[in-house]
Design a protein around this nucleic acid. Structure first.
Length: 470
RNA sequence: GCGUCGGUACUCAAGUGGUCAACGAGGGCAGACUGUAAAUCUGCUGACCUUAGGUCUUCGGAAGUUCGAAUCUUCCCCGGCGCA
């Protein structure tokens, strides 16, 4: 197999190393053009091309393997064309490891039906009055910023009120300009409060959009291949000669600890323009709370292909009721092809990670660890603590005695509490570093427990201790 | 000493006869946050009673006027400024 084949055809290479008997859990390695991801893995969220308040160097020293940015936000600001001009998002944000972008599908939900309401990714569904009988663009007097049509979604920018129309094709084009290693199909994230009739309607739309996303993606990949061919065959590409150095990936990926990872990375270290890097596309499964719809969606997305090429992996989307999240994940992962990676979108409380991994999830992303950190909430093995509580004011112990993160190695609770009270920026930074480390380490420990055949012992031990203060 | 402006809860600061336990901001004390509209949001912050609500004590001090006073009157205490 030529370098070109390796480079272009294998945007993603996923190898399962071990499966946990009696469950859907597996341990694997996911190879991307910017390095490997040992799965299961947590994905740290950096919506606007930055993990808020944290330097990329800190992430690297923090067990962070992969970062997820957002299509919609970067399209609005600074614009995907500008990011492309800058040499792609990796260069632009100085993150050398694997990178993903979300498609903007979640903003269909958060700026649409959830706008101005107390509706989030995970809700408690015990109250039937939450169900939405009728839909309109204005509910309870709050106008939405996103309105869904069959062809795409109109967004009213939350930054300046300007109107934008995002279609599946547009989302993919933006994501190709951004240049993340793994990108997502444009979908409609529905609320669990929607009725079945609406879920069905939304699902068929998501499937149609998935197909259009796939089509546009494959076309754009073909264009890259043609350009690549020209370069290799020596057909002069005058543009190439004049491209600035910064457009070429020469440095090795950030994460090169371990021979295995380095070998994987080296495969992709030739001097190719960032814009020609292959990208992998994940299709997204929806279907709300319905078993029938979830399974139908998993089947449809799994089987979807154009000229023999399908999705490189899968996202499991939708807003969940906490109570039935695990069953929804189980239904879907039973059907999705085992050999491709699965990403549970937007989920990331410690207990959810155990649940997801047990039910066959390989990747999780969640704003929780970083958002909560900025608000003074820190993860510990005994549960979350609010560092601004009075009792920590003169507590000169570490957040966690045995934690190896930069924050715990160097600072006391009293100091972090002081930074929060004094409204110092470093407060967010130190808290975010600890929380991302905590979650990364937790997933890495779960991974090891599967390799050691100790998953259930570890889960029990961890959750019992964690829930003490929950 | 005379004149003048002021003294309101932890702090700053509204209020100038009843709708005032007293706007607002900060601080304090808690809580929330799951593909980031988020360094955000919510609640409490005189005392007591179990929340709705109720009772009591408060606006420098004292004494008055009034059905009713943080608000009006008198005296006193304290502070700023001006003039001596």
């Amino acid at each position: 197999m030529s370098i070109r084949d390796d480079f272009m055809k294998k945007a993603l290479d996923f190898k399962i190393e071990k499966e946990l008997k009696g469950t859907l859990a597996r341990v694997g390695v996911l190879k991307t053009p910017h390095g490997e991801i040992k799965t299961p893995s947590f994905v740290v969220v950096g919506t606007k091309g930055t993990v808020k308040s944290v330097l990329p160097e800190s992430l690297e020293g923090n067990e962070t393997q992969v970062v997820l940015a957002n299509t919609y936000h970067l399209y609005l600001q600074p614009g995907d064309e500008l990011v492309k001009e800058a040499g792609g998002l990796h260069k632009f944000m100085n993150w050398k490891g694997p990178l993903m972008t979300d498609s903007g599908g979640f903003q269909v939900f958060s700026l649409g039906v959830a706008y101005g309401k107390d509706l989030s990714k995970v809700v408690s569904i015990t109250d039937p009055s939450l169900l939405i009988p009728e839909r309109s663009s204005v509910l309870d007097g709050v106008p939405r910023l996103a309105t869904i049509g069959n062809d795409g979604v109109s967004f009213r920018s939350h930054l300046d009120g300007s109107l934008h129309y995002i279609t599946p094709e547009k989302s993919i084009e933006i994501q190709h300009n951004l240049g993340a290693d793994i990108i997502f199909a444009f979908d409609e994230c529905t609320s669990p409060t929607e009725n079945t009739r609406y879920q069905e309607e939304a699902l068929s739309r998501t499937h149609a959009w998935a197909k259009r996303s796939l089509k546009r993606h494959l076309d754009l990949e073909k264009e890259k291949e043609r350009d690549f061919e020209k370069i290799l065959s020596g057909d002069l590409n005058p543009d190439l000669e004049t491209l600035p150095d910064i457009l070429f990936e020469k440095s090795s990926p950030a994460r090169t600890d371990g021979d295995e990872r380095e070998r994987g990375a080296r495969l992709f270290q030739k001097e190719y323009p960032a814009s020609l890097y292959p990208q992998a596309l994940f299709g997204i499964v929806q279907g709300g709370r319905s078993e029938e719809l979830r399974k139908k969606s998993a089947k449809a997305i799994a089987e979807m292909e154009i000229e023999g090429r399908g999705f490189d992996g899968f996202g499991i989307g939708g807003s969940f009721a906490k109570e039935d999240m695990s069953s929804a994940v189980f239904w879907v992962n039973q059907i999705l092809p085992k050999e491709k990676p699965r990403h549970l979108l937007g989920i990331g409380e410690p207990e959810d990670l155990f649940m997801g991994i047990e039910n066959g999830v390989d990747l999780f992303d969640c704003v929780g660890p970083t958002r909560v950190a900025r608000n003074g909430c820190l993860f510990t093995k005994e549960g979350k603590i609010n560092i601004t509580n009075q009792k920590y004011k003169n507590d000169f112990s570490k957040v966690e005695q045995d934690c190896n993160c930069y924050t715990c190695k160097n600072y006391t609770k009293a100091y972090i509490a002081h930074l929060f009270r004094a409204n110092e920026m470093l407060a967010s930074t130190l808290a975010s570093i600890h929380n991302t480390y905590f979650i990364n380490k937790l997933v890495s420990d779960i991974r090891q427990s599967i390799l050691d055949d100790k998953f259930f012992e570890f889960k029990k031990e961890f959750l019992e201790r964690y829930n003490l203060k929950c």
